[in-house]
Amino acid sequence: VTTYKLVINGKTLKGETTTKAVDAETAEKAFKQYANDNGVDAVWTYDDATKTFTVTEMV
């Protein structure tokens, strides 16, 4: 189990959160659900070296 981080650069929601998951795909599903629940529709990137997902909402 690995800890993954999500950085949110949204128009109305900004911040960071983490989740523990067995792999990046599982973490991504959890983070996308979190973003969807909070109304963030954005572009996703992932950095495997830092285990960090970044979501940037387009203006």
Rank of each mutant, 00 (worst) to 15 (best):
N38E: 07
A49Q: 09
T18F: 14
T17W: 15
T45L: 07
E57P: 08
N9M: 13
G39W: 14
A35H: 07
A27N: 00
M58E: 11
D47F: 02
G10A: 11
K51T: 02
E28Y: 15
A21L: 02
I8D: 01
G10N: 06
T50W: 02
A24E: 04
E25N: 08
T26W: 05
L13N: 07
T45C: 07
E25Y: 10
V43S: 08
T50Q: 04
T45M: 07
D48C: 04
V22Y: 10
T19P: 01
A30M: 12
W44L: 06
N36V: 13
A24T: 07
T2E: 12
V55H: 03
K32L: 07
F31R: 00
G10W: 13
E16I: 14
F53N: 00
V40E: 05
M58K: 13
G10V: 15
T17N: 04
V40G: 05
L13S: 08
G39M: 13
T52V: 04
N38W: 15
V40A: 06
Q33T: 08
V40P: 05
E16H: 09
D48V: 06
A35Q: 05
T18Q: 08
Y46D: 00
L13V: 11
T17P: 03
E57H: 08
D37Q: 13
T12F: 13
T45D: 08
K14L: 09
A24I: 10
E16Y: 13
D47K: 01
Y46T: 00
T56L: 06
T52Y: 00
T52R: 01
D41W: 09
K20C: 12
T56C: 07
E57S: 08
Q33H: 07
G39S: 07
T17A: 12
Y34K: 03
V59Q: 11
N36G: 14
G10T: 15
K14V: 10
K29A: 10
T50M: 04
V7H: 04
K11G: 13
T3Y: 06
K14P: 06
N9I: 14
A21F: 05
Q33M: 10
K5C: 07
K14F: 10
Y34N: 03
K14H: 10
A49K: 09
I8G: 03
D47Q: 03
T3L: 12
F53R: 00
D48P: 12
G15L: 15
T52K: 02
V7F: 05
A21V: 03
T3S: 06
T18H: 07
E57I: 12
T54D: 01
W44D: 00
E16N: 07
T17F: 15
D41M: 09
K29Y: 06
G39K: 07
A27C: 03
A30C: 12
V59Y: 12
T50S: 08
L13C: 15
D41G: 07
